[in-house]
Design a binder for these strands. Structure first.
Lengths: 121, 121, 121, 121
DNA sequence: GTGGTCTAGACCACA
DNA sequence: GTGGTCTAGACCACT
């Protein structure tokens, strides 16, 4: 994983983990890597790893059992809801910005259709 | 203007100025407010105001004439190009994020079509 | 028994056992469940079960006879004394906290009188 | 300030700050000590100080402006509501525990009335 | 072995 | 000066 210098590392890892959860690569109830494992996996300090889980826990993505580890929240509906929430947030922000630039919804859609597939690969 | 606590103020002001340029509320060659005026207009610290112009100058949006003030770059094509550049950057980022969430381009478009107009007002 | 994630499991079990003693559901001299039985009863790791008795023994609530098991201390007065001690500790801590919040003893009492019975059910 | 070994230092500081807010020793909008000042005041590491504010911010007690400092939430009603919430939480927990020990509400009240003033001073 | 806390010290971005 | 992030390394409590 390459880190963007402008965004805090822990944020980037959180984003990555969230995506994995939302895309069902990680499942409710599943054990997440331990702090130390996460630190190795993402090449961060164990402290930073701990911070990542703590933040995610505060947001309800996972919970932790002392001496056992950190686990993904066992809420079946959560994943789909989160996916929609995240998409809506993205969408709403994107549309607002585009409309601020003076693009109509029609123009936006045709821009998406024209957008080169290669660039997003 | 209400400032978001999470994003640096100077960035928010720069974004606002860029939008004004792109939307043709500010024109090439036009004189921009002085540092002090900008500070008052946007209710920011004069240091911050200075940084804003410095940053925009570095990006080629404006230039300074000693004793005269700061002016928008007199590049006729700039506005339209800038608009496209910004739109492309937005678009590319947005599509990447949505595809990371597992949405196909088709789904994205239909989501945009369904998106409630009210919410973006 | 539902465990609170924030409090160590062994503490929660100890608290529960103490309450049972104090409420005379368990009597002086009575044999307590074996480590293994306790582990099953409370759905904890046998290591944790062992720790629970070790801790309670250190506090004088019970004692172990090799090959026979663990028994509640045969002190007739213990139950009543324990009950008072626990109540006093609770009371003292509670009053201190409430007074720190700026409540007078009078206010505290009237709050208790008003407190909805339902909520404590 | 003397720290209890059993409770994390940052929790104890948070509790102390919350009490000060709730008792109106600290007011909405007021600037809190800087991270570094707090570290000195409470004799903790600057990192711990930062953590304290971050936690309190997550709970809505304060907000922070980069380069300026951390400020108490400017919500006039917040303080009184918080005071009531905290009192209710204390009360409810206390009553539950006491009733688990087999005390009636009447007994609890008379215990409070008898409780030696000196001990809570 | 797991997470939780804490210290020490560093560098950076922001106002 | 302010807060934000990160590393390094330590000790502890819990399972």
């Amino acid at each position: 994983m390459d880190y963007n210098v402008e965004i805090p590392i822990y944020m980037q890892v959180i984003r990555d983990l969230k995506k994995r959860i939302v895309r069902r690569q990680l499942h409710p109830g599943e054990k997440l890597p331990s702090n130390r494992e996460l630190a190795v996996l993402y090449k961060v300090n164990p402290n930073t790893a701990a911070r990542i889980y703590k933040e995610m826990e505060a947001e309800g993505y996972c919970y932790t059992k002392r001496g056992l580890g950190t686990f993904i929240t066992e809420d079946e509906k959560m994943q789909e809801e989160l996916r929609k929430e995240m998409a809506d947030a993205l969408l709403s922000g994107f549309l607002k910005e585009m409309q601020d630039l003076g693009f109509s919804r029609k123009e936006i859609i045709s821009k998406i259709e024209e957008f080169d597939e290669e660039e997003t690969a």
